[in-house]
Design a protein around this nucleic acid. Structure first.
Length: 564
RNA sequence: GCAGGUGUAAUCUAGUUGGUUAGGAUUUCAGCCUUCCAAGCUGACCGCCCGGGUUCGAAUCCCGGCACCUGCACCA
C-alpha cells in the first residue's frame, strides 16, 4: 500500500499541496492547495456540481461563513461544540464536567469552570471509569469564535459546516422552488473546526472544504421517483449489527437495512460519483452509524469510508436528519419553516374549535382580553382539562375557565396540510476525497511514480512534446499545444530533457496522454499519442489531433484514429 | 491536550567522544549531446526547523517554541 509520506512528498514536490504559512513554520491542520491541487479540486467540484444540479435538478447557493451565535444555538453546535471537560489523571478518559456534578447542583450546565472545579473538589468526584483523580475543567470549543461589528457587541462563529446556511434560507429557497417538494439545495464551501489535534495530512484539517446537499422532502413519503431505475445496483454495506454484505439497494430497503429509498438512492449516487472521480471501488464501503454514534435526531446515518494507508476513513456522511434542523430554526426564529402539501381533493372536515366569549372575557381581563381571545381561537380543544385551558400570554401562563369560551364544531374546508420537511443530507469531505483519489491513483514501479488519475479530474489532460527541440519539431508541437489550449483543453508543453523524462514528469502528475511530434511528422503529417497507464502509443494524423483528444476525453478507444 | 518518536536543500538521505569549507542522490535551471520512455558530460541554484543557553568552538549537548509521525481522546 502507498505510504502517506510518499503521497504528501509528491504533493509538495509537484504542487498539489503546500503546508500553509510554511515560511513561518506552518500551522497544524492547515494546508494550501497548489496549482495542480487547485485544478484537481475544481475538477472534482465541477463533476459533483453537475451531478446534483444538472442530474437531479437541485439548486446551488453560497452562504456566509460567519454566522451570528443564534444560528448555532439553534443548530445545537454551541452546546455540542463547547463542552467543559475534565480528564482522568489515571486512565486519561475525558468527561463532561457538568454531567459529573449533576447530582450536586440543580443547574450544573450553567456553572463556570471554577464553580465546577469547586464542586468536583468538595464532593470528591472521581473518574467514573477507574476512580482516578480528575484534572481541572478545560473548555473544549471546537468552533472559531469572533465578533461581528465593532466592539465586542455581537458574538459570531465561523461555521463548522455549510448546512446551516441552507437551513436558514429555507423559506427563501422553498419559495424559489415555487413551494414544492422535493427541494434539493447544494453548497460547496469551507467549514472550520478548531481541532484539538489535527493529524494525518489533509485528513483532519482546521479549515476544510465541504460539498453538502440538503434535500428537503415530505416526511410522510420517503420514496424516490428514480429509485426503481437503480434498485438493482449494489453497495457494500457494513450495517450496525456487524453484518457486512454486498446487496442491491432495492433489497437493502426492502429488508429495512437502509431505512428509506431516498437515503438509499443518494448512497448509490454517491458511489457513482466517487467511482467517477477515481475512488477505487474495492476500497470503498458504507458503514452504518452505531445507535450511540448517531446524532439523537437522526433516523439513520451511513458513512462512506475509503480504505487509506491510515485505515478506513470517513469521506462522506449520508444522514436522514428528520425534521430536526428546520424545527429548531423555526423555534428559535419564530419563522414558519413548514411546507404545504395540497390534498388531491379539498376535504370538508368537521373540527372542534374554541370560540371565545368576548362578552365575558372583556369585563374580566380588560385590555388583555383581545390577546387572550386570539390565543384561544388558535388553541386546540383537546388541551382543555378539568374545566379550564392554560394559555401563554406575554410569557405568563394563564388558566382560562371554560365559562369564558365555548367549544363548537365547525365545518372547515381543508385543501392541504402543513408539515415540516424532513432532510436527507449527503455531506462530502472534499479534502478527504481528494486525498483518497491521490492515494488510490498512486503507484510506484522501479522508482517510477505513476498517478493514474481519471482523465475527468486530471489537472492536465495532455502533454505536448517535440521529440527534439529543433528542426521545426518544436514549432509543430507548439501549434498543437496552442490549438488544444484554445479549445479549452489543459496542456503542458515541454521540450526539456529526454523524451522519457518528459513522459515521467507527466506520469507523476497524472496526465493521461502525451502527444509527441517527431521526424516522421514532417514526412507524413502524423504524431504519436501515448496513453499514460500502458505507455502504449498510437500514431494519428496531425490535423485530426483535436478530434482525437476530444474523443479520448470521452473515453473513446484511440485505435480507431490509428493511421498505421 | 497527554505519552512516545522525529526534524539536515524542492525531495530522499550521510554526518555526535562537540573541532577545518556539512557529503551524496534525485529534482530544477543553463550549455553540450541526444531520432520515443527518468541516457551521458559540464556548470549552476538550493540546506543543519526557530529562539535562547552551555562552550574558545554546536547540525551534534541543555532549555523553550513550532511542525511532522504513532497511540489515546475527538471528529468530516
Amino acid at each position: 500500500m502507498a505510504d502517506a509520506q510518499d503521497i504528501l512528498s509528491l504533493c509538495k514536490r509537484r504542487g498539489f499541496l503546500y503546508p500553509s504559512f510554511e515560511i513561518y513554520g506552518g500551522v497544524a491542520g492547515m494546508y494550501d492547495y497548489g496549482p495542480l491541487g487547485t485544478a484537481l479540486k475544481n475538477n472534482i467540484i465541477e463533476i459533483w456540481r453537475r451531478l446534483y444540479t444538472l442530474g437531479e435538478g437541485f439548486i446551488e447557493i453560497d452562504s456566509e461563513t460567519i454566522n451570528p451565535e443564534i444560528v448555532f444555538k439553534a443548530s445545537g453546535h454551541v452546546d455540542e461544540f463547547a463542552d467543559k471537560m475534565v480528564r482522568c489523571k489515571v486512565c486519561s478518559d475525558a468527561f463532561r464536567a457538568d454531567h459529573l456534578v449533576i447530582e450536586y447542583h440543580p443547574n450544573a450546565g450553567a456553572l463556570k469552570d471554577k464553580e465546577l472545579d469547586e464542586l468536583i473538589r468538595i464532593n470528591k468526584v472521581v473518574c467514573p471509569a477507574c476512580s482516578g483523580g480528575l484534572s481541572s475543567v478545560e473548555e473544549f470549543n471546537l468552533m472559531f469564535k469572533t465578533n461581528i461589528g465593532p466592539g465586542s457587541g455581537r458574538v459570531g462563529y465561523i461555521r463548522p459546516e455549510t448546512a446551516q446556511g441552507i437551513f436558514v434560507n429555507f423559506p427563501n429557497l422553498y419559495r424559489y422552488n415555487r413551494e414544492k417538494l422535493p427541494l434539493g439545495v447544494i453548497q460547496v464551501g469551507r467549514g472550520y473546526r478548531n481541532e484539538i489535534s489535527p493529524r494525518q495530512g489533509i485528513i483532519r484539517l482546521r479549515e476544510f472544504n465541504m460539498m453538502e446537499c440538503e434535500l428537503f422532502i415530505d416526511g410522510e413519503d420517503k420514496t424516490w421517483p428514480r429509485f426503481d431505475d437503480v434498485s438493482s445496483e449494489t453497495l457494500r454495506l457494513l450495517a450496525n449489527d456487524g453484518l457486512e454484505m454486498e446487496i442491491s439497494i432495492g433489497d437493502a430497503v426492502d429488508q429495512g437495512i437502509i431505512c428509506n429509498q431516498v437515503l438509499a438512492y443518494f448512497m448509490w449516487l454517491t458511489q457513482e460519483f466517487l467511482k467517477a472521480v477515481g475512488v477505487d471501488e474495492e476500497r470503498l464501503r458504507f458503514r452504518q452509524h452505531e445507535r450511540d454514534e448517531m446524532a439523537h435526531y437522526a433516523a439513520d446515518c451511513w458513512d462512506v469510508e475509503s480504505l487509506l494507508s491510515y485505515g478506513w476513513t470517513e469521506i462522506v456522511g449520508i444522514a436522514d436528519r428528520g425534521c430536526w434542523d428546520l424545527s429548531r430554526h423555526s423555534q428559535f426564529s419564530g419563522v414558519e419553516m413548514s411546507s404545504f402539501k395540497r390534498l388531491d381533493e379539498p376535504q370538508e372536515m368537521e373540527i372542534d374549535r374554541i370560540k371565545p366569549r368576548y362578552d365575558k372575557l372583556g369585563p374580566m381581563y380588560k385590555g388583555k382580553a383581545g390577546k387572550i381571545g386570539e390565543v384561544l381561537e388558535e388553541a386546540d380543544p383537546v388541551e382543555v382539562k378539568d374545566g379550564s385551558i392554560i394559555i401563554e400570554i406575554d410569557g405568563e401562563d394563564i388558566a382560562i375557565s371554560d365559562e369564558l369560551f365555548e367549544v363548537v364544531r365547525v365545518k372547515e374546508k381543508v385543501t392541504g396540510v402543513r408539515s415540516i420537511p424532513h432532510v436527507i443530507e449527503p455531506s462530502y469531505g472534499l479534502d478527504r476525497i481528494i486525498y483518497t483519489i491521490l492515494e488510490h491513483a498512486y503507484s510506484k514501479k522501479d522508482d517510477q511514480t505513476l498517478l493514474s488519475l481519471k482523465q475527468t479530474v486530471a489537472p492536465i489532460k495532455v502533454g505536448v512534446f517535440p521529440l527534439m527541440a529543433r528542426d521545426g519539431l518544436d514549432d509543430l508541437a507548439k501549434d498543437i499545444d496552442q490549438e488544444l489550449r484554445y479549445s479549452g483543453i489543459e496542456t503542458y508543453y515541454d521540450d526539456s530533457g529526454s523524451i522519457g523524462r518528459r513522459y515521467a514528469r507527466m506520469d507523476e502528475i497524472g496526465t493521461p496522454w502525451c502527444i509527441t511530434v517527431d521526424y516522421q511528422t514532417r514526412e507524413d503529417g502524423t504524431v504519436t499519442i501515448r496513453e499514460r497507464d500502458t505507455s502504449s502509443q498510437v500514431r494519428v494524423r496531425f490535423d485530426e489531433i483535436l478530434d482525437v483528444v476530444r474523443a479520448a476525453l470521452c473515453d473513446v478507444d484511440l485505435s480507431m484514429f490509428a493511421v498505421e
